[in-house]
């Protein structure tokens, strides 16, 4: 296999040129924060948390969508990156109505973990407090738009893994919402197969099964990654 030399955080590595910076970092135990990335589904670079500095490029680039190149010099934890990560995390919290204490995902939420990681003690931006609906029409699951961060992991899992494409995104800007079919209640969707993959893909408490009490939610996003690995295997 051809390898190319790259440098990440002063560490010299020989890597496969087909990989992204994020994949290389994950393999070499270099921490990169992510929200919209889920192994097994296509990366879109939406959350802007995995931004890295690359020597010779002024802009910060998202590690999940940037492929490695020969002699690339990457830095993953400079002051500039940390500053932006903190801003991004705060904006996530300011955009919708996130109340950890009453959330089903309390303690197991990736957004909550992110807040701790970036050492967020307060939010410097005014909260939008948008009016969001809670869709309980599905017999087994609930979609709570208050806790959605628009990572679109559910959309991609539904399309790429399940192949149902029940979810998509409507509107633009701060008015974006995840919708099922023609913005119909989830329970009346004609495309949903009730497989529950979106539930495991969701990083927060936005999609959860009914009959779960506060803080008791168990999510296993890794089952989707494992499923995609198994599909690649030749029998």
């Amino acid at each position: 296999m051809n390898t190319i030399p790259i440098t990440i955080n002063d560490k010299k590595l020989d890597v496969d040129p087909a990989k992204t910076i994020l994949e290389v970092c994950r393999e070499n135990d270099i921490e990169i924060l992510t929200m919209c990335h889920l192994k097994g589904i296509i990366d879109i670079g939406a959350c802007r948390l995995c931004l890295v500095e690359i020597e010779g490029i002024n802009k910060l680039l998202s590690a999940c969508t940037t492929k490695v190149a020969a002699n690339m010099v990457v830095k993953t934890s400079t002051e500039r990156i940390k500053k932006y990560q903190r801003i991004t995390a705060e904006l996530f919290f300011a955009e919708r109505n996130h109340v950890c204490s009453v959330c089903v995902a309390n303690g197991k939420c990736e957004l909550q973990q992110l807040g701790y990681k970036v050492e967020m003690d307060h939010i410097r931006y005014p909260h939008l407090f948008p009016h969001c609906e809670v869709d309980t029409s599905h017999p087994w699951y609930v979609m709570d738009h208050n806790r959605c961060i628009m990572c679109t992991r559910c959309v991609r899992v539904c399309n790429e893994v399940e192949g149902a494409h029940n979810w998509d995104v409507m509107n633009r800007g701060h008015q974006v919402r995840i919708i099922s079919d023609f913005n119909t209640p989830w329970g009346e969707s004609i495309t949903c197969t009730s497989c529950g993959k979106c539930l495991h893909a969701c990083p927060t408490g936005a999609i959860w099964p009914k009959a779960i009490v506060q803080g008791q939610l168990e999510k296993k996003p890794e089952i989707i990654s494992e499923l995609m690995e198994k599909r690649k295997m030749k029998l």
Binding site: N159, D168, M170, R172, F182, I190
Partner: peptide, 12 residues
């Protein structure tokens, strides 16, 4: 096409 795809295009 999936209905949600059409709706998202229309609202975008």
């Amino acid at each position: 096409l999936p209905p949600s795809r059409v709706f998202s295009t229309v609202t975008f």
